[in-house]
Structure formats: C-alpha cells, structure tokens
C-alpha cells in the first residue's frame, strides 16, 4: 500500500469557476452580493424594496435561486429590473456554474452593470460551502426566528461579511433579544458588520442602503484604479 499526499480542495472545480467570475466582476466594477438565509427571513422583500430605493440610474440585475417555481423572479420583475430565476430542481444551494449560466441567460454585458444581487436558496447550511464569485456573502436573520441561530449555524455567520437582522419593526411584539443575537454572531465572527433593518418601516432600510452605496462606490473605484494602472 502506498500513501499519496495530495492537497486538493474538494470543491476546487467550483472554486475555479468562482475565481473566474470574481475576476470578471471586479474588472467591470460590478458589486456582487450573495444573500443567504432560512426560508422566510425576508430576502425577496428586502431585494424588492432595495431595488425600488436605488437611484434610477443604477444598473442592477438579480439572479434568484429556488428549488421550485419562479415566483420570486416574477415578484422582482414587477419592479422592472432584469431578473433570472435559477430553479435547481432539488439542489439545496447555488454553485458557480449556475451563476455562469444565469448570467448568460440574463444576456447582460457586465460592463453595463453596477450591481448584481444573488438570492440564494433558503437554507442556512449548504450555500455556505459554495463560492459564487461574490464580493460578500450577506446573512439575513429575522426577529421571528431564534437569537441562537448564529450558534446553531456558525459556518454561514463565519463566512458572511454582513449580518442583516430583518423585520426589526416586529421587535415590540416578539420575545426576541436582538442584543443577544448580535453577541452570538460576534462570538463566531468578531469583526462581523451588523445592521438592523426593516423592509416595511419608514427609513428602516437607510443604514443598509448606506452600506450598499459605499460598497458600490468602492467596487467602481477599484475597477477604475485597476484599469489605469494596467
């Protein structure tokens, strides 16, 4: 018997596709965000309201993943934005090749885009393992869930840059300890950014929109710097 040392990432093929995508996104200054949460935390609602709140000049597209139905794509399309539904037919996560296909189907030139939102399958576990070439993963947790979810599903909190605590307008009516939820997330990821938001309350998305604008600006500027130095 011979032992062969090999150091290969199990998901190296997905990683290769994701790195290729990331390179293209960055070269074109497109900010790509991968939204992950349990079913029902408010990903689609947040996206709809965010799309409507963006300046009309913002060039934005959406890829939305579900196991079945194109209901979410229909919701987002009503707001008039280019959207493509990725229906996985049973698979519990999106992977890099699905993003490549989704972009082809959208038929948009990346040079004509400022921001791409990817709404992952409602699942706090499996999407954590798959890089989609995004600039950041964003995890959503709503106040109607448990504040210990960051401890129960640590990987996604470990890997996400931003934690959006959603539906905070319901805090007066539910026994949810928002400070404990944030402390739990920081146990897993001390440097995590956390924003409390509400898609339905007046001004409830302001802080999130501020974060988004800052990231879009950074993506644009770093693409410009790269094109000037190359």
């Amino acid at each position: 018997m011979e032992k062969l040392e090999i150091k290969t990432k199990v998901l190296s093929e997905n990683q290769r596709i994701a790195e290729e995508l990331r390179e293209k996104f960055r070269a074109n200054g497109v900010l790509v965000l991968n939204f992950i949460s349990s079913p029902g935390s408010g990903k689609t609602e947040l996206l709809e309201r965010t799309l409507c709140a963006l300046p009309p000049t913002t060039r934005v597209a959406v890829l939305t993943g579900d196991i079945q139905t194109d209901n979410d794509a229909k919701r987002i399309a009503r707001a008039g934005f280019p959207v493509r539904q990725i229906t996985t037919g049973g698979t519990c996560h999106l992977d890099g090749s699905m993003i490549t296909r989704g972009l082809n189907e959208l038929g948009i030139d990346l040079a004509d885009l400022d921001v791409l939102f990817i709404e992952n399958i409602g699942n706090l576990v499996c999407p954590a393992s798959y890089d989609l070439g995004e600039e950041a993963k964003i995890v959503l947790l709503s106040v109607t869930e448990g504040e210990d979810k960051p401890l129960k599903y640590p990987s996604i909190f470990f890997k996400s840059a931003l934690f959006l605590l959603t539906k905070v307008d319901l805090l007066p009516y539910v026994p949810f300890d928002a400070d404990a939820a944030e402390a739990n997330a920081r146990l897993i990821h001390p440097a995590m950014e956390i924003i409390r938001c509400s898609a339905t309350a007046t001004g409830g998305l302001d802080q999130w929109l501020g974060w988004l604008h800052a990231k879009m600006k950074a993506a644009r500027e770093s693409a410009l710097t790269a094109s000037h130095t190359s």
Partner: peptide, 21 residues
C-alpha cells in the same frame, strides 16, 4: 480578549489517497 481574526476553519480538502499498486 474576544477580538480575533480567523486564520482558517472552512477547509474541505482531500489530503491523501492510499493506493494498492
């Protein structure tokens, strides 16, 4: 202190094969 940066933890690697030649 609790403030820390991660150095790893999300590894998923094939490390070795044992083959009978």
């Amino acid at each position: 202190s609790h403030d820390a940066i991660p150095l790893g933890g999300d590894e998923l690697d094939i490390e070795y094969l044992e083959v009978d030649d």
